[in-house]
Each structure stands twice: as C-alpha cells, then as structure tokens.
Design a protein around this nucleic acid. Sequence first.
DNA 1: CAGGGACAAAATGAA
DNA 2: TTTGTCCCTG
Length: 757
Amino acid sequence: MSLLSKLNPTQQNAAETVKGPLLILAGAGSGKTRVLTYRIAHLINDLNIAPWNILAVTFTNKAAAELKDRIEELVGHRSKDIWTGTFHSICARILRYDADKLGLERDFTIYDETDRRSAMKRIFDTLNINSEDLTPRSVIRIISRAKNSMTSPTSFTSDIENTHSSELISELYRSYQAELHKNNALDFDDLLVETVRRFNETPSVMASYQERFQYTHVDEYQDTNRPQYMLCQQWSGETRNLCVVGDDDQSIYKFRGADIRNILDFEKDYADAKIIRLEQNYRSTGRILQAANAVISQNKNRKGKQLWTDDKDGDLIDIVECDSDRLEAKYVVQTIRQQISTGTYKASEIAVLYRTNAQSRTLEEELQRSGMPYTIVGGTRFYERREIKDLLSYMRLLSNPADDIGMLRIINMPRRGIGNTSINQLQQYALANNLNIFETLSNLENVNGLNSRSIKSINRFHDIIIYLQRMKDEIPLPEFGRLVFEHSGYEAMLKQDRNHETEGRVENIEQLIAFMAEHEEADPDANLLSFLEEVALMSPEDDSNDTNNAITLMTLHSAKGLEFPMVFITGLEENLFPTARAVEESRETPESIEEERRLFYVGITRACQKLVITQAHQRYAYGNFIDCKPSRFLMEIPQELVFLCQEISEANSNNEQPYRNSFDNAQRTNRKIPLRGTPKDNKKGVHYEWDENSNHSFGDIIDNDDFLSVGQWVRHSSWGRGQIVAREGSGEKMKVAVQFGPHLKKIAVAFAQLEPG
DNA sequence: CAGGGACAAAATGAA
DNA sequence: TTTGTCCCTG
C-alpha cells in the first residue's frame, strides 16, 4: 500500500508532483506540514532519492526538528541526512563550511539587534554624529531594509523614504559594513545577503550546492524577502525542483522585508509552475472558519480562496467588552480557570494571543495571582538577559577575538578597574593602527595615556582571556561555560551582592550551562562555535520551556503555524490592533491595514474549537490611562457568529487593593524601587528594596525625628500616598514599613539605603 | 571611577 | 511612569 494513501486526493497530488516548480497554496489548517512530510518521505521511500539531496527550509528551527521527527516516523533513520533549517541557519552552515572558498573567516560571529546597535553607536561616536532625526536605531532600520531588498552601500540611493540624508546614510552603511568586517561579524541580514552575493561571485561553490539540493522545499513562502527569494532560485538551480508552500493570507512579516509578491507572482517567475490549492480545513469548527473567511475577504490584495470543513458549526465566538486592560486580563484568567476546573480544556490546550509583547505583562500578573501555570513565548527573551549576554560575549570573544563589540561589553564587566578613559585610549590606539582591541592588549606599552594602575588591570584581564582561550578546546562545553563564569570574575561579582535579583541571575547562568550540556549531547561535533551559532539563530518559539501543562501566552506573530483548542485574542482596539502606525498609514494607502487584517486572520485560524476575543475601553500605558475604541476588525465578523458580553468593573472592584502593575511586579522581582518623599519633606531620593521576608509587625513604634519617622507621609509615583507605620534601625540600614492605600490592607516593608551622613 | 541627578526614550512584530 | 544613558562631582 502506498505511503500517500493517507492523504486526501489534493494533498496526494501535491505530494506526487515532484518535478519542476510547484506552488502549494495551503490555507490555514489544511495539513500542509502533513503534505510536506509525506512528500519528502515519498521521495526517499518510493523514488529512492538520497536524503542528502533533499532540502527543506522552515520558518523556525523547532519546525525543522518537528518535520524531521515526523519524516523519521515514515522512513526511519535516513531522515537524519535531510538538510533542514531556517534560511538563516542553512546560510550560516554554508558560509562556515565553505568559508575559505567564499572569502570569509570560519569563526565569524553573528550579531543580533543589540550588537548591531552598539556597532552603529560606535560609528556615530567616531564620526561625531549628533543629528536630530538620525539615531543608531533608525539608521540600522534603514540599512536592514536596504539589505532586505539587496541594496548595497554603493547602490544605495534615496529611494528609501529618506530625503536629504541619503548620502550620510550611505556613508554610515559603508562604515557599518566595514566595522562588521573588521570585527569578523555578520548580522542576521548578512547571513542571507552574503550567501547570495558570494554564490554569485563563486559559481563553483554554488554549483556544488545545486548538485546537492536536488529537491528544494520552502515553507511559509509568503514571508520570504528578496534575498530569500534569490536563495530559492540559487538553491533549486537548473533542476528547478522547487516546491514552495504558503498562504498569501498569512503574510505577516512585511516589517522585516517579506514581500508578498514573491508568492503572488510565483507563476510569473516560473512560467511552467504548477499550482495546487489546499482549501479543506481539518482544524477549526465551521463558525470559526466562517469568521475567518469573512474577515479576510475584506482584503483586496489576495489570490482568493475559501476554507471549508466537514466539521460541525461549533460554538459561537465570544466577543467580550471590558472596562480596562486589567479587567480584560481578569476575565481571561477567570474564564480559563473555569474551563480547566470543569475539565473542558487542559491548560496546555489554551493560548492567549496579543498584538504587542507589552500586553503580556498584565496577563502575566493576573495569572500569577491566580497561581495557574503559564509559559510566555518570546517577550524578554532568555538570551537577551544581561547576565546571559555578558557571558555569551565572553565566549564570543574567545572564539572570535576580533569581536570588538563583545570586547567592549565585558572588558570592565565585572568591574576590574578599566575605566572609560582607559578604554577610550585603547580604542583610539586600535583605530589608529588598524587593530582590534584584543590585539592592542598585548601592545600596551605603545598606548598613550595609561597609568600604571590601569595597565596592571588590563594585563590581568588579558591573562584571563588568554587562559580561557587556551582552555576552550580542552574541556567539555558545559565545564568550559562554568570556567568562564568563575574565571571571569562574574560569579564573584554576583555572589558579592547577594539578593533576590542576583540569585535569579545565577540561576539563569546555571540554565545556560545546562543548555551547553544539552547542545553537546545532541551533536557529537559540537563545539563553542556551534553552540554560539545555535543560540544566535534561535527563534523565540524555539526556546519555549515546558509547555506540557501550561497556558501559552504569545504574540500573534509567534502563533503562526500553531493551533490550540481554545484561543483568546486580546486587545482588539483601534491603534493597538490594528496598530497606530497601520491606522495612520492607511489614511494615505488604505491597503496598509491589510497586513494587520492578515494577522487577525492568523489569530482566528489558530483556534480549533473555542475562540474568545476581548477588547478594553481603557488601557494603561506610560503611566496613564488612555481611552480605546473597538477595533474595526470586530465589525467584520458576521453578527450571527458572535456571542457578545460585557465585563463591568463593579463586579470586581470590591475587595481588590488599588495598586497597579508596578507594585506587584516590583514585589515579585524584588527590584529596587525609587521611592521619593514629597518635595516639602524630603528633597533627597531614597531607594527602597522590598523585603518580603521581613516579619516586621504592624504596631511597632519607633520614634525618631528623622525625616522618615513614623506618621510621616510619603508619596510614590505609582502607588500614591503612603504613611510610615513602623521603623527599625537608623542610618544606612533602616527598615521602614510604609502603608499605601486607603484600606490598610497591605503593608510594604522597605529596606532603606540612606545617604551617608 | 563610582554614584547620583537630569534627561530622554519607551512599545509593533523577529531571525 | 519606568528605565536607561549621559554627564558631573566628590
């Protein structure tokens, strides 16, 4: 019996069409991963194609791993040799593997957003740029856009909406590339652009890959940008066995250069292309699909398709109006609690989606208050935490000493007596002699203006780096990670000021070391470089932790490709979803709202059975409340599909303390909170650290004439007026109990650090 | 060169 | 309102 008999006729057709260009227009939930899986298995099993001749590009590394697993179930261990990965990871692999032939250093570092911003900032500093409307950030944005449309510094003209400053930007672009080159680094965009460029320059290398990639598959084709489009052409080469899968209605990455025309014009690019539409949906109920179809049909710019299902109509879609974002979160959490307690859905079957990462905070607080398990995908990502970036910068520097950005990050972290003046001298010397900073460290006697103490400190640092460099290939990866942590002095620094915050940091680093162990275990050829690469190219969806029994919180973008039995989409308000920017742009170009609508469409089609959409009348942002109007998208859902309900504030406001986000947040994270007295009483800022372990009791009386005496009122920017009800100690170490709020329900105990004297 | 005050920026989405 | 960065001072 044939492998493909498990597919429906259209799917079968798609899996069997292996020669020539093929576009599979796959609607949401139409089983495209299934088709890809079976298609590749069919190639290997039935057509005897060698696995290493098959390439499959997916949107995340996790998706790649899943695809491989599923293929393995059909063809066994042979699946190991299939080339899979994201565009970025495959390019990185190629660039490293053939670095020498392509004119690169093999150990190049991959710069992320923060790194490239630091690099640009450095350029701003050296060129002494102080422009009103140009910031490192905005320039990076423009350069990134240029790269995504394959525009080099030389061909850069003012075609990208900048007026008079195009020459300057072109100059900055050039300098930026020079800086990266000097640091032996590539940024995310370069991985793609450089592969395309170097393939063109070195046809022999390109030919070797074309020979290898006999059958190329690209998932999520609607979100490819210009360089990715060109890679598709290069990789599929003369065989033109290119199978792209996508859905024009789900194109949501315009901001990073995705060009929806790639999919809309596929037939023009490949005249002999075959097109197969998958429109039967196996995921959602009838009503959810009807809503999705109705919404997306408002878009003009699309190929057009109608999803249909054999499934039942299912529940109505709940649309819930809430008074505020806080109540919205409460409603979501309450509803989830109900569903879980009645056993209708498990936590892992529920997802809460939102437009912007910032919205997760309120939801997170409410979930935490209710004690329900949840996991946040993306957001403040693990690898962007300070301590993790610092430690990774050490490791990066050790594998690529030319990486000045990493060097600058850690040369005085932990503080080791290398101050700004010394660092500036080093930088100047490096610049003048065309060296990187690491190289100047062994030439200190030639650097002007260093005093003997600085030289001593720098030498000590230099020794640390040399030692670690020597050790990097001597011991297993996780052991090495620990060595870096200890030997760099980072551990000592964290241990020195022991509080809740630093304990969290130590835990994070432990976790990083655990990842290193995992990485080494997964890949016998693992080394420091491969670990750093994996980390750099990780997508937020990739490092989602234990999702086994937790509610999932994520942005709509991250939700692409996933499905959940029950889905909440929150914040359906004008200027939030669609975003203010999209609303504004749509005044001139009405179609700019369409991308947002597609995003909403993606959200709706994530739901299998139950969809709840919420909207708030008021939202808390930048410290005050703003009024919100319901999103236009809400009106696009046909009324007969909707159950409308309202969530009124009175129902909840009775016994809740009046504190807003920052209070809970601060208590939870034990962050230092600046608490200022009223100007009349106290002109100096005083820092408090919340001390949850204090057993200080409410009635203690400590009398004192100091400005923080009992009975004194103080004001905090978020929590309003509070009164000191108790105090302990004096001078630098003083505990003060401050009470906020009218009902005397909550006592905040503070640990004060006063000005000496 | 560490610590504090003044001031600006923040939040669209992400490999 | 909160957070990060720059510059100034002791």
